[in-house]
């Protein structure tokens, strides 16, 4: 399948500000990206950088402060049309808090069908079908979530998200709450189902290896802004932004290679409340110059679709 010219999701200069007692928290501050049909876009960054908020704003789980979100070329910013919800779904991080403890697995997976008004007689077979697809035995139908282990719970969450056959799914750290031994199973399941059902993923994670495994392109976020966006291989081979380089250097490598100095960041992430002008990364950047703390760098194409927002990249 060739990728169609029109992206399925287009996010243009989206902002999400929260008013807090100490000022304005700029959780997402002018983020733009587009995702083509059938591709997986990875969104990485450390905790608190606004990646989960971005995912929720795209789905309109929380309203955007500014900006536009297009789905299939249609403006869906802050619209709550129930039919469009069928096409866009989310898989949550914590399979413990994302399932209603009072409902059986069958009822949880069936809920989307009830909400969307699918007739009762069709529901049972659809639920059984999707349970088989995500690798849950039919025995679990009458079980409660607390009887399942983390991996199976996450399969229930995936079944609930996919039963309506959506086109676009936001995966919000879907494996980071799971045991390492189960992570690979769930990632492979997501990948297989993605191919079978022709899904488009926005895959949010703080784990670079997970994102590398799944994504065609990767966006790196820092303090509410995308600092770099490129094809996965290009980004990992040729990171241009100092923050991306620091992130990659922080990935543990199984082989010990002496002599290669690691780039270690010092200091903490500055507060996203009323940030100072200039590059958000400047206070921690080892290569920062004068211009960095006065002028906000723009996200520019550094060649062949490799976008980076840094004054030092020419």
């Amino acid at each position: 399948m060739t990728l169609s010219a029109q992206p399925i999701v287009e996010v243009r200069d989206v902002k999400k500000y929260f008013r807090v007692p100490r000022g304005t928290l700029r959780a997402v501050d002018g983020v733009s990206f587009s995702i083509e049909r059938g591709e997986t876009l990875g969104l990485v960054g450390e905790s608190g950088c606004g990646k989960s908020t971005t995912g929720r704003v795209v789905l309109n789980l929380i309203p955007a402060t500014a900006g536009t979100i297009l789905f299939n070329g249609e403006d869906v910013t802050n619209s709550v049309d129930r039919r469009k919800r069928r096409e866009m779904q989310i898989i949550f991080q914590d399979p413990y808090s994302s399932l209603d403890p009072r409902k059986t697995v069958g009822k949880i997976i069936e809920e989307p069908l009830v909400i969307q008004g699918i007739p009762r007689r069709e529901r049972a077979s659809l639920v059984k079908e999707i349970m088989a697809d995500v690798g849950l035995s039919a025995d679990y139908y009458t079980r409660f979530p607390h009887e399942l282990d983390g991996g199976r719970r996450q399969r229930v969450g995936i079944a609930r998200a996919l039963i309506l056959k959506p086109k676009f799914v936001v995966c919000d750290e879907p494996v980071s709450a799971l045991d390492v031994s189960i992570q690979a199973q769930i990632l492979n399941l997501l990948q297989d189902l993605g191919e079978q059902m022709g899904l488009t993923y926005l895959f949010i994670s703080h784990n670079l290896s997970v994102v590398k495994h799944l994504s065609r392109r990767v966006a790196v976020m820092y303090l509410g802004k995308i600092v770099e966006l490129a094809e996965t291989n290009e980004l990992f081979k040729n990171p241009l932004h100092p923050y991306t380089r620091a992130l990659l250097a922080a990935v543990p490598i199984p082989k010990y290679r002496p002599g290669k100095p690691k780039m270690v960041l010092s200091g903490d992430v500055p507060s996203p409340i009323d940030p100072k002008p200039g590059c958000r990364f400047a206070p921690r950047c080892p290569e920062a110059t004068e211009v960095c703390s006065s002028e906000d760098p723009l996200l520019r194409d550094a060649g062949a679709g490799h976008l980076v927002s840094c004054h030092l990249v020419r």
Binding site: R85, S98, L99, E111, I115
Partner: peptide, 17 residues
Amino acid sequence: NAEFIEASQALGAPGWW
């Protein structure tokens, strides 16, 4: 703010539901 409530909202469930 529980995620299972958010999941229901993401499915397009109205408030009363």
